[in-house]
Design a protein around this nucleic acid. Sequence first.
DNA 1: GTTTACCATCGATTTTTTCGATTATGGAGG
DNA 2: CCTCCATAATCGAAAAAATCGATGGTAAAC
Lengths: 297, 297
Amino acid sequence: MELRNLITFIHVAELGSFTKAAEQLGYSQSTISFQIKQLEEELECLLFERINHTITLTERGHELISYAHQIRALTEEFKENLEEEKECSGHIHIVTPDSVCDDMIRRNYIDFHNRYPAISVKFTTADTAVMFDMLDHNEADVIITLDSHSYNKDYVIAKEKPLSMHFVANASSKFANKQKLSIRDIIKEPFILTEYGQGYRRVFDRELAKKSLEITPILEIGRTDMITALIAQSDMISFLPDFVTKDLVAAGCLCYLDVCDMEVEIWQQLIYHKNKWMSKALKTLLSYIIEKDFTEQ
Amino acid sequence: MELRNLITFIHVAELGSFTKAAEQLGYSQSTISFQIKQLEEELECLLFERINHTITLTERGHELISYAHQIRALTEEFKENLEEEKECSGHIHIVTPDSVCDDMIRRNYIDFHNRYPAISVKFTTADTAVMFDMLDHNEADVIITLDSHSYNKDYVIAKEKPLSMHFVANASSKFANKQKLSIRDIIKEPFILTEYGQGYRRVFDRELAKKSLEITPILEIGRTDMITALIAQSDMISFLPDFVTKDLVAAGCLCYLDVCDMEVEIWQQLIYHKNKWMSKALKTLLSYIIEKDFTEQ
DNA sequence: GTTTACCATCGATTTTTTCGATTATGGAGG
DNA sequence: CCTCCATAATCGAAAAAATCGATGGTAAAC
């Protein structure tokens, strides 16, 4: 019982004529005969009485009419639903490093929620490798990486920007006002760094290795807010992205160290899988993030 | 958007796999891919995200699932309705000569209604020719004729029997006890006959014409109950079927005349059009009529 | 009596559906 | 690291289905 035949049946029943239905539907009359016969054979019942070239619905036909209308109405309802702009709603899973999560939630979440109350967001933190794994398994809708610049034809990079990284210490550190420090000047100091899985930590270690240097941090922890808090009240040093530290530096709690022989190139990238279906909610979230996080300095 | 594809879509969504759905439905896997793609192209939206050979329903897919289930449920509901025995109900139009109508309503209608209260019957009276016309225009579901024996490949004769016809007069008529009367003996008497349209009246006239005789009745009327009532209180004669007169004869109101040179062969036939859809109600009515009207003497 | 309108039927053609084989990919197990 | 297995996409061939146009019979209209 295919929909095409049901539609034809409805038209025939309404017009009371195979010929007229054929004209209305753009079929030939023999096609209409065939389609109705097909329905009748499949349902094993007569839908129309044919007496002297005029057709009359049988009881069964009358019953089918109502079902056919309901079925047609459902398909049309669905198609209309597809076309009409929907309220922006849905569930979105975004995965980021801890620092980004922290930053975005603090600065933007309330505003986002107020603007789009029907979008439910799941915020998860993970290492770069895990994030890509989640993209590959369709467990994350979108990720934000802080790592070396990545490119892969399976992914779409919605937006990216290079990230400023700084060595930071307490504002009253002995290195606070020294200019043109070398990495070798500070390498023996006590360091707090994020775990190795975090992208920029890995890039940092790799850069050190190029200079045959190595740091054994006294504390490894993903939570960058903890790191800044500890540094603010001790003589420890860390290496962190600008967006984590700039407010505290501006407030005079922390200071940047002027280490001039250590260039670490870190990119912030907003990435989703190329086969990802872009729901309106997802598009909205991406636009929001791009506006708030990638355009401002 | 054909039903076949929707069914496939439901299976795929439930199993989360094109391959498993193919096995379950007896299709090849490429067919499933094709069907889903066809749906997606027609609806111009992605139903499944394909990431690393695993599929995940998109939001649109989720929406479609619910519609697809509803549509499938409707078609199944209809098919079940078809199969299950229904209460015997419906509207039936039966057309008969006035005499038959009179007889059946008096003797059987109440009983029939009590047995099948959900069947609504429309009883109409008409001439033989009009009755066949009504069959041809699907205006009557079934007719009962009292006429010469008819056969036509377009009609189905559900049942038939020859009818006894009698000349009848008042029980105290001068002809009451005479034996071996000739038609010529009574032809000048005042006759009451049914109209010419009534089948047996026509046959009667035709038989007379064969003998070069002719009757000009003093009253022509379809209502046979009127005829018998008039005869019972006058010296008029009529020519009527047995079932109209036998009770009055038995009651001593009327008597049969022993006219031995006038053989008129009249058949009672229960007829419907060969293309008529036999609803349960119609079958029931036919069986009832056959049982009550054609088997008893 | 001729024309028109209607539906059924048939064979031919076109379109659609289905299949099987192949490819590409990733995961699991050795 | 390699092989085997499972998955879905793709492609061309084959099968099936839908559609058409022509024809026929019948009844109604003119």
